[in-house]
């Protein structure tokens, strides 16, 4: 597929992104740059100073809703991307409603309990939609531990090991790598569809 064919195909596709932090903001931008037609993004949080070490936001956006700031940033790159944003703390019943028309869903939450809730909901209620989860990206180094594991329609990107803690904070490079793997996996699924 040449570049224009890729853009044309992606233009018709919709990716859902659950969470607009380090994983969600970076994977959304990569998909926007690739020519994705539609993004559905949900997050309840506002931008804090501490987010700027790894999330695709800027100093002057501190205090804004993440979903609104991300939409602004996407439009600065490509105003043709249609972004539907939901300022909401996702629970099981929202997930089914908000993401039911997506071709792929990217899990981009922070907490493992939320990741678990999303996986359970999507595999149960939306089993035909591929789900790409990020798990294990704290700290630095260990490039080659980060990988993608597939089980049916479920894909897990990360090292499945490095948990965020006070002594193992999330930093831009490893969070960035995993978010790009998620976006890249989404492209592979959408373009081979």
């Amino acid at each position: 597929m040449n570049y224009l064919e890729i853009r044309k195909r992606l233009k018709t596709k919709t990716v859902g992104i659950a969470g607009a932090g380090g994983l969600g903001s970076n994977s959304a931008m990569a998909l926007a740059r690739s020519g994705i037609g539609n993004l559905v993004i949900a997050d309840f949080d506002t931008i804090d100073m501490s987010n700027l070490n790894r999330q695709y936001y800027f100093y002057e956006q501190i205090g804004k809703m993440k979903v609104l700031a991300l939409k602004e940033n996407i439009k600065l790159v490509d105003s043709n991307v249609k972004v539907r944003s939901f300022s909401i703390k996702l629970e099981s019943h929202h997930i089914t409603d908000i993401f039911k028309d997506c071709d792929v869903i990217i899990e981009a939450f922070d907490l493992q309990e939320m990741k678990d809730m999303l996986i359970n909901t999507v595999l149960d209620k939306l089993p035909d939609i591929p789900l790409i989860v990020g798990s294990g990206m704290a700290g630095y180094g260990n490039n080659n531990l980060i990988k993608t594991v597939r089980s049916g329609n479920l894909y897990i990107c990360g090292d499945q090991l490095s948990e965020v803690s006070d002594d193992n904070p999330p930093l831009a490079p490893r969070v960035g790598i995993v978010s790009m793997m998620q976006a890249n996996q989404a492209l592979e699924i959408l373009l081979n569809d």
């Binding site: 939450f109 922070d110 493992q112 990741k115 678990d116 989860v133 594991v149 897990i156 499945q160």
Partner: peptide, 29 residues
């Protein structure tokens, strides 16, 4: 390829020939 929820792990039997997947979820994002 079917999800086994946590509360059913005690009652789900694994037999010869089964395909089992175990993935780790850790916080961070």
């Amino acid at each position: 390829d079917r999800l086994v929820k946590k509360e059913f792990r005690d009652s789900t039997i694994i037999k010869d020939g089964d395909n089992v997947t175990v993935l780790h979820l850790v916080s961070g994002g």
